[in-house]
C-alpha cells in the first residue's frame, strides 16, 4: 500500500466547496483533507447530504469556483493543482490522470451515440489514435470489462444494453486512457444486487491489474467494507472518522460511525431484532448546527459538544492501528477527550 518514498497520487488539503444559494451558503464540503497512493482504494461513506458526491466531483474538477460556487483548499493529482489549472489544461488531466464512473449508467451515456463512439471519441481525442486503431482498442476495452461479443456491442446504442452492461461500458470509457486515479461515485447504486457484486468485483480486479488508485464513493457500508483499504466517514460535509477499513468497521471510534453500523439490519441477527436507529435527520447544510454537527443526534453528546467543533485528530495508543483519526470530543473507545480537542475552534 502506501510507500513513504513515493509521493501520493492524490493530495486533498482542507478542501471546502460552498454553494451560494438563495437560502444562504451551503457548505457541502467543509474542510476535508486526505491522501491516496497508487494501488490504494479509499472509501468515502456517508448518508445523502454528507457531501461525499460533491467531494468526489470537486476532486475531479467538475465542480470549481464560479459565480455560484466557491472552492478553496487544494486538490493535487499527480502533482497538478486541479483548481489552479486553466479549464483546457484541466481537460487534459481528465482521461490519462483521472477518470470518473457515475452512478446512473443510463444518463452518463449519450443515448444518440453508439457504444463504440463513446470509446473511440475518448481514444482519438486524448491518445490521438487513428480511426482503425481506436476501434481495435475499443473492442479490447470492452473485452477487458467482461462484455461478451465486444465487436457487435460497439454498434449498439445504450438503450439496447442492460443496466449492468451499460455500467461496464461506462467503466470501459473511464479506463480508455489508462487513468492513474479512478473516482467511482456510487457505481452500483442503480443496479441489482447480483449485478452490483459483479461490477464491484470487476472494479476490484481492474484496480489490482492496473495498479490504479480508486476513490469509491458510496452509501453502502457493506460494499465499502469489503472493497477498500482505507475508509473515510463523512457527516454534514466533514470527515468524522478515517483509518484502515477493517479497524474502523470493527471498532468505530466516532459515535456516528458506530450508530450507522448498528442501524443496518444484519443477516446474522434473528428476525424482528429491534434496530438501533439514529434519531432525527441529517442537518440542513445551509444552517449547520454549531459545534459538532452530529451532537443533536448523538447519544454521547455532552455540554461542550454543541459549542466547539471537534477537530480530526489521531487516535493514540492502539498498537498496530496507524493513521486512525477521529473528530469527536467523546470518542467511543476513549474515556478522556483527545489531545487537541480540548480547545476546538
Amino acid at each position: 500500500m502506501t510507500t513513504p518514498s513515493v509521493p501520493d497520487l492524490l493530495e486533498v488539503t482542507d478542501l471546502r466547496t460552498v454553494f451560494h444559494t438563495a437560502r444562504g451558503d451551503v457548505r457541502a464540503v467543509d474542510g476535508v483533507s486526505f491522501r491516496l497512493a497508487a494501488g490504494e482504494t479509499l472509501g468515502l461513506v456517508g448518508e445523502s447530504g454528507s457531501g461525499k458526491s460533491v467531494l468526489g466531483r470537486t476532486v475531479m474538477g467538475l465542480i470549481s469556483s464560479g459565480p455560484t460556487t466557491t472552492v478553496t483548499g487544494s486538490v493535487r493529482i499527480g502533482g497538478h493543482d486541479v483548481h489552479a489549472l486553466k479549464p483546457s489544461a484541466r481537460r487534459r488531466l481528465w482521461g490519462p490522470e483521472v477518470a470518473m464512473v457515475f452512478q446512473d449508467p443510463m444518463t452518463s451515456l449519450n443515448p444518440v451515440k453508439r457504444v463504440g463512439t463513446h470509446l473511440t471519441e475518448t481514444l482519438r481525442r486524448h491518445l490521438h489514435c487513428s480511426r482503425t486503431e481506436a476501434t481495435e482498442r475499443a473492442v479490447d476495452l470492452l473485452r477487458q470489462v467482461g462484455i461478451p461479443e465486444p465487436a457487435r456491442r460497439l454498434r449498439q446504442y445504450p438503450h439496447e444494453l442492460s443496466g449492468g452492461m451499460r455500467q461496464r461500458v461506462v467503466i470501459a470509457t473511464a479506463l480508455a486512457c489508462d487513468p492513474r486515479l479512478l473516482i467511482a461515485d456510487e457505481p452500483t447504486t442503480a443496479l441489482d444486487v447480483t449485478v452490483q457484486k459483479q461490477i464491484l468485483d470487476l472494479l476490484g480486479s481492474l484496480v489490482a491489474e492496473r495498479d490504479m488508485a480508486m476513490l469509491l464513493v458510496s452509501h453502502d457500508l457493506g460494499a465499502v467494507a469489503g472493497r477498500t483499504d482505507r475508509v473515510q466517514v463523512m457527516y454534514a460535509g466533514r470527515t468524522v472518522e478515517s483509518g484502515a477499513t477493517r479497524p474502523v468497521f470493527a471498532a468505530p471510534e466516532h459515535p456516528y460511525t458506530e450508530a450507522l453500523l448498528a442501524s443496518i439490519p444484519n443477516l446474522a441477527h434473528p428476525p424482528h431484532t429491534v434496530l438501533r436507529a439514529i434519531e432525527g435527520n441529517p442537518p440542513d447544510m445551509a444552517r449547520p448546527p454549531l459545534g459538532c454537527r452530529f451532537a443533536p443526534r448523538c447519544g454521547r453528546a455532552a455540554a461542550g459538544c454543541t459549542d466547539e467543533l471537534p477537530l480530526l485528530v489521531g487516535v493514540p495508543g492502539s498498537a498496530g492501528v496507524t493513521g486512525r483519526e477521529v473528530a469527536c470530543h467523546h470518542p467511543v473507545g476513549l474515556s478522556a477527550p483527545l489531545e487537541g480537542n480540548r480547545h476546538g475552534r
Binding site: 477487458q144 461478451p148 460494499a223 467494507a225 472493497r227 443477516l267
Partner: peptide
C-alpha cells in the same frame, strides 16, 4: 446467489482474480 451477492467485509478476503479468469466477471444478459 442473492445471499452471496450481499456485499460484506468477507469480500476483501478473496484475492481479486483477473477479469478474464474470474467466472463471474463476465457480463450476462438477463
Amino acid at each position: 446467489l442473492l445471499l452471496a451477492s450481499v456485499p460484506s467485509e468477507a469480500d476483501a478476503d478473496r484475492a481479486p482474480a483477473g477479469v478474464e479468469a474470474a467466472p463471474g466477471s463476465k457480463a450476462v444478459e438477463l
